[in-house]
Design a protein around this nucleic acid. Structure first.
Lengths: 191, 191
DNA sequence: GTCTATACGTGGATAGAC
DNA sequence: GTCTATCCACGTATAGAC
């Protein structure tokens, strides 16, 4: 979202801030049905905009994806310190809690995350930045600071834990898990 | 795999057991790149078979998918008792261990599982049977027998744990996690 | 800046000859 | 049982008129 300057200059044919509208529509669709099942025509329809305009603002579909969902809204350092704040024998819980908090915010972060996760399974372009960011920037940093011998393995296990949560809750939508509050999940996660 | 009767009857034009060949090729591709990115033409190429033959043996692409990967090779009851065999405070580890064992077998089970998981994120047809099977038949049964108040939630959390593992290890292929042995993973999973 | 028309590829599926 | 030829829908992308 390097967009929405929100500059409503004098009335022009068509609507102002077309770019922002396209972004929002794209994010919605990407997070709902995943990268490859989204067509530019569908995005245009959703945004109530002409398909050719998408190519005008974004050079290609992958470019659109990159600009709308791929720049993570996460501050890695912030996340790391959040996770490390609690007692050290409950790292797993803390990680899940931090992610649930970060992605349930009102910023559209959850849409971005589900879009990434959905597409990561099919698109290699998405896989690399995603898994690298999570296991290196975030969990690698955490595990390293903890100074455990197998810190790499532990970091990636934590990634797998969080990914499994997100997958089950936001994509597969396992019923009980979706209905449960963050509190409850963190609670039950101990054993 | 309801196929391969392996009956080489008298020489005929073309190859015998075309159906089985198609099945294997399809499974390979489905598990490698996922349902929607696989074209029937690609399967035909991989199997060194004419595209039209696929429609001859399987009525449609979804039918082919169903017959090659969707019938789970898992015996739910078996899995449940495996998980329940160990001490009750290490259920999570036991579940992961059971799945790793079941799917690392020589039966092509892992290909089936990755194919399902890959496609589950995009195809709703795959999502329902998969999540139902896992959270009801397997983990629901386990949690219910344990008689915990939140057994449903726990069951689905266990699902999420296993899915996260599979996703990270077999699809995203997080390096350290992929390289690690099953033993090590189960070991480190305790905390 | 906006939209119409269209090029060009690829996908799933079929009919019908051998 | 096998394959050639083809239909048709849809995808991305572009050229060019308003």
């Amino acid at each position: 979202m390097t967009d929405s300057p929100a500059r409503p200059r004098g009335r022009r044919p068509g609507r102002a801030d077309t770019r922002g509208t396209i972004c929002r529509a794209a994010l919605t669709l990407f997070s709902t049905i995943g990268y490859d099942k989204v067509s530019l025509r569908a995005i245009a329809r959703e945004a109530d905009v002409d398909p050719a305009l998408i190519h005008h603002y974004f050079s290609s579909k992958s470019d659109l994806f990159a600009q709308t969902v791929l720049d993570l809204p996460l501050d890695a350092d912030r996340l790391v310190s959040d996770v490390l704040a609690g007692p050290r024998d409950q790292i797993g819980q803390a990680a899940v809690a931090a992610f649930l908090a970060a992605y349930d915010g009102p910023d559209g972060g959850r849409e971005r995350f589900t879009a990434m996760l959905r597409s990561a399974v099919a698109e290699e372009v998405v896989q690399r930045p995603m898994s690298e960011f999570m296991s290196k920037e975030v969990f690698g940093a955490i595990a390293e600071r903890l100074g455990h011998v197998n810190f790499k393995l532990r970091g990636q296990l934590a990634v797998s834990l969080v990914l499994g949560m997100a997958l089950s809750r936001y994509i597969l939508r396992l019923p009980t898990l979706t209905a449960a509050s963050d509190q409850m999940i963190i609670e039950e996660l101990r054993p």
